[in-house]
Write a protein that binds this DNA or RNA. Structure first.
Length: 288
DNA sequence: CATACCGCCTGTTAGC
DNA sequence: TGCTAACAGGCGGTAT
């Protein structure tokens, strides 16, 4: 599942190849892929033709292509989205949703998404007067992620301590801190020795600082592993970096011994999904 | 406002 | 063997 490290691998790979190219033609093959673009597929296609990709940016799990005239093409991979750069002759994927061609480059950018939780839309870039920084309005409600140069730890810790809800919910809430999904939430909590159902308000400043530093650390490790794993002209992220298989401490490891203390890892239902944790290293809160 | 929960999707796997 | 149910889970909308 693409979380911040996987999206960043995609962003940097796309940026390396796509910046400077002019979009000539767009085909939407599945309407659900542009459901957030209310004006529909025809409008989506018409508005992009002729625009040049000037930069590719990311906040949390959202990425966007900066185009001429402060237009932005926003993309979210959802659960199963992929961006592929392929020769025009490459066979069509079963779950191909959107196809882009370029005026000056004989390659296709393809958005492929089996489960259609991902999608793309077009938005005006909103420029902040003081910083000169632009963010599409679709992304305005997303908090800065731990890799953002303007990310600030202290106000985040204060916010977490003010919330009477479970810490894992807060980690997954993209309006609090962005980029973290179920996998890296579980890994961060294990590294920091914090049980996922502890309330934000029950944790100390030091514990929360350790937690956020752990989150950044685990995602940096994943990024380092994933960033080396794709070749020049084929960008493919399905949440599967080499790191994914080798280095996870708790996620997907129910029953296996904790690498710190040897106790079996537990899997528990949480928010219609699951949490993995060590029952000894991550002590549960007292019953409320 | 803060918090909780559901529906959207499809391919794979576990279990009977 | 063949079927069904569970599971994967980010996110936006809605209910409390």
């Amino acid at each position: 599942m693409p979380e911040l490290p996987e999206v960043e691998v995609v962003r940097s790979g796309l940026a390396r190849h796509l910046v400077g190219h002019q979009i000539s033609e767009v085909d939407v093959l599945h309407p659900r892929a542009i459901r957030k673009h209310v004006a529909g597929a025809k409008d989506f296609q018409a508005r992009l033709a002729g625009l040049t990709i000037e930069a590719i940016r990311r906040r949390g799990k959202y990425l966007w292509f900066e185009l001429d005239d402060n237009q932005a093409l926003i993309g979210h991979l959802g659960m199963s989205g992929q961006f592929l750069l392929l020769p025009l002759s490459a066979e069509e994927e079963k779950h191909l949703r959107i196809r882009f061609e370029f005026a000056d480059w004989p390659m296709q950018l393809r958005f492929v998404d089996q489960r259609t939780f991902g999608g793309m839309s077009i938005d005006e870039l909103e420029i902040d007067e003081s910083t000169g920084e632009g963010v599409p309005s679709t992304v305005a409600h997303i908090a800065r992620d731990p890799f953002d140069p303007k990310f600030e730890l202290a106000p985040l810790v204060t916010k977490l301590r003010s919330r009477h809800t479970e810490i894992k919910r807060l980690l997954l809430d993209q309006s609090v801190v962005s980029g973290i999904g179920n996998i890296y939430a579980d890994e961060s909590l294990w590294r920091a020795g914090i049980h996922p159902t502890r309330l934000g308000s029950s944790l100390t400043k030091v514990q929360l600082e350790l937690l956020m530093n752990s989150a950044k650390e685990v995602m940096a490790d994943a990024l380092a592993a994933g960033g080396t794993s794709f070749d020049d002209l084929y960008v493919n992220v399905n949440g599967e970096s080499g790191y994914f298989e080798r280095s996870l401490a708790v996620y997907g490891r129910r029953g296996e011994p904790c690498s710190r203390c040897g106790k079996p890892i537990v899997r528990a239902a949480f928010m219609n999904r699951s949490s993995h944790y060590c029952p000894a290293c991550q002590r549960p809160p007292r019953a409320r």
